[in-house]
Design a protein around this nucleic acid. Structure first.
Length: 580
RNA sequence: GGACCUGUGGUGCAGCUCGGAGUGCACGCCGCCCUGUCAAGGCGGAGGUCGCGGGUUCAAAUCCCGUCAGGUCCGCCA
């Protein structure tokens, strides 16, 4: 008897493990009936499926089993007769014969077929997720994710990090993402919140002397959902003391590359980096997809003294679209609409034709301007050049979005291009009260060369914050934290956070820092997103066992739901009717 | 809060522009036949509030308005 570590009291091995080495042995497998092919009352074939795959069982005589019945099949492993080998099946050279079939569980016909022949509407998949999980793609994706998790834990352990769990019931800190709120039964009128990240908890671990912490942490944010965003998501969260930014980039690179190697078998090259300003300038985004070119070009100097009103702006950016000259007018209108939605005043387009440019604007351009566009980025006949003239950041972002629309390959395609984006700005824009907003979070350490600018020119202050980007997806972000009270108070003051407000919101953190805070820095990246890209799927729901819909519903359980009057009473809360 | 796409037997689609009987295809399901199939095959059968509500019309799956659900995106996500 061949024993494997998949053997249990009920089975000897997994279906797909059966091969010619077992020929002659009498073995048991357990699984679901994937398919039944009957040939009268003397012969029937059963495809038995478990998580590993299929194996064919040959049954002499009729038997009363249907699709998805759970069975234990004991049979003799036999070579298939001449001419009946199935090359499309991993176990296609063998079959189980002289089978005893024990029905362990009956099954109604499933609401959708569990083979891979048709794509099932996601609404139905989610309603019957337990059946969807039985199918190969979900089996593959969740197992791939488990490989990622295991590799990350191994990597962090090997790098000397200590796994520490932090609370899910935490104190409200009304900054950043909207928090999920949990009413307290024992303290009526008071609330916990679910952490949008273990940010403060892990910084306190640094004060607590755990100089290398990590956790595979669930984070919860009550913000609108997207293809790459669920209410709850999982991060590899880490923080370390007595380190610089370079140390953190090294730790995270190791972890991500270890995970990539575990999944693909090949260790990617070291992860390169660019500054935030470069990313914006060349790709029009802080999460550049480096799988394809179409780098943004800058024509500001060419148009510095232009006669053309549409191009009188601080920045003129251009994007060459190879072969784009064949776009129809309605396609160009679509792109223009997209540009306007993103805030551009308009979108100028130029078809590159034999003897120059074809465009409504062509006749207004000077000779130098025409030449600059016609020769842009090695442009050749048949290309299209799109231009946006505006304030620098807007012009870049609009063309960056068009670059993605026009050039981005599917998630499942192309190599994995990791890149670090560093030197994010410290502040971005202002809130309703006219106060500066922290680009990352208020505990982020400014770039030491820019400390002087905090008061004089805050928008130019660079921070020691960094993102990890993979194929245009933001995997995660981190920063060096402020551990000095004087700098922290200058930042709070720049953000318009008074001492009193700071004390009430983060008092316990600031208080802790008075007792000896080591210099520290950290990072967190999304395991859902990383796994989705490894799995080649466009949507993180495909790597989550029980995801929610875009409206935040769980179609299987029906959550969110009402609770009983008793529960409401115990919590001392009141439900107010919608619309009142 | 907003834009766009989708909703038709259990499943996946077609039908919708240009209104005319719930019409069609494939899978599944049920019954019968079939001793080497593996997308098994043959014969027969059941199965529908065309998401829901209203309107236009002699007549609505089809046109209009509203609404619900799912999706993609903008806002939002320190």
């Amino acid at each position: 008897m061949s024993k494997t570590n998949e053997a249990t009291s009920m089975r000897d091995l997994l279906c797909a493990s059966l091969d010619e080495s077992h020929v002659g042995e009498r073995l048991s497998v357990c699984g679901w009936v994937a398919k039944r092919r009957e040939h009268g009352e003397h012969l029937a074939f059963l495809d038995i499926r478990d998580r590993s795959g299929l194996v064919q069982a040959v049954v002499a005589g009729s038997l009363d089993v249907r699709s998805e019945y759970v069975v234990r099949v004991t049979g003799t492993v036999s070579r298939r007769p001449e001419g009946t080998v199935n090359d499309r099946l991993a176990t296609g050279r063998v079959e189980l014969t002289d089978c005893d079939v024990v029905v362990l569980s009956l099954a109604e016909p499933p609401p959708f077929q569990l083979d891979d022949r048709t794509e099932i509407d996601e609404q139905i998949r989610l309603r019957y997720r337990f059946l969807d999980l039985r199918r190969e793609p979900m089996q593959h994706n969740l197992r791939l994710r488990a490989v990622v998790n295991a590799a990350l834990r191994r990597s962090m352990d090997a790098q000397g990090f200590c796994e520490v769990e932090t609370p899910l019931l935490w104190a409200p800190t009304p900054e950043g993402a909207r928090e999920f709120v949990v009413p307290s039964r024992l303290h009526p009128g008071e609330f916990y919140v679910l952490p949008q990240s273990p940010q403060i908890a892990k910084q306190l671990l640094m004060v607590g002397g755990f100089d290398r912490y990590y956790q595979i942490a669930r984070c919860l944010r009550d913000e609108d959902l997207r293809a790459d965003r669920q209410f709850e998501f999982t991060q590899l969260d880490l923080e370390a003391s007595f380190v610089t930014q370079e140390d953190i980039l090294g730790f995270v690179s190791n972890a991500v590359l270890d995970a990539a190697e575990a999944v693909t078998g090949v260790r990617p090259e070291a992860i390169g980096s660019m500054t935030w300003a470069q990313a914006l300038d060349q790709y029009g985004t802080d999460k550049p997809d480096l799988r394809f070119g179409m780098v943004l070009q800058d024509l500001s100097s060419v148009f510095a003294h232009t006669e053309v009103k549409a191009f009188s702006a601080t920045t003129v950016k251009a994007l060459r679209v190879p072969g784009g000259a064949s776009f129809t007018r309605s396609r160009l209108d679509q792109l223009t609409d997209q540009a306007k939605e993103l805030g551009a005043k308009g979108l100028a387009w130029f078809r590159i034709v034999g003897d120059g440019l074809e465009s409504p604007l062509a006749r207004f351009l000077s000779e130098a301007e025409t030449r600059a566009i016609a020769t842009l980025d090695d442009a050749s006949e048949g290309d299209l050049v799109l231009c946006v003239a505006d304030e620098h950041q807007l012009a870049c972002k609009v063309l960056g979005a068009l670059r993605v629309t026009l050039g981005s390959p599917p998630v499942s395609e192309g190599p994995h291009h990791y890149v670090w984006v560093t030197e994010f700005p410290m502040f971005e824009g202002v809130d309703e009260d006219g106060n500066l907003q922290a680009a990352h979070h208020p505990f982020t350490m400014p770039h030491l060369d820019d400390l002087e600018l905090i008061e004089s020119d805050p928008l130019r202050v660079r921070s020691q914050a960094y993102d990890l980007v993979l194929n245009g997806w933001e995997l995660g972000s981190g920063s060096v934290r402020i551990h000095r009270a004087d700098i922290q108070s200058r930042i709070f003051s720049a953000l318009g956070i008074s001492d009193e407000v700071a004390e009430s919101r983060f008092g316990f953190l600031l208080g802790a820092f008075k007792y000896g805070a080591p210099p520290h820095a950290g990072f967190a990246f999304g395991i859902d997103r990383l796994s989705a890209i490894f799995a080649g799927v466009e949507n993180i729901r495909e790597v989550i066992a029980y995801p929610k819909t875009q409206s935040g519903a769980d179609l299987m359980t029906g959550a969110p739901k009402g609770i009983t009057d008793r529960q409401i009473r115990d919590l001392r809360i009141r439900v107010v009717a919608k619309g009142s």
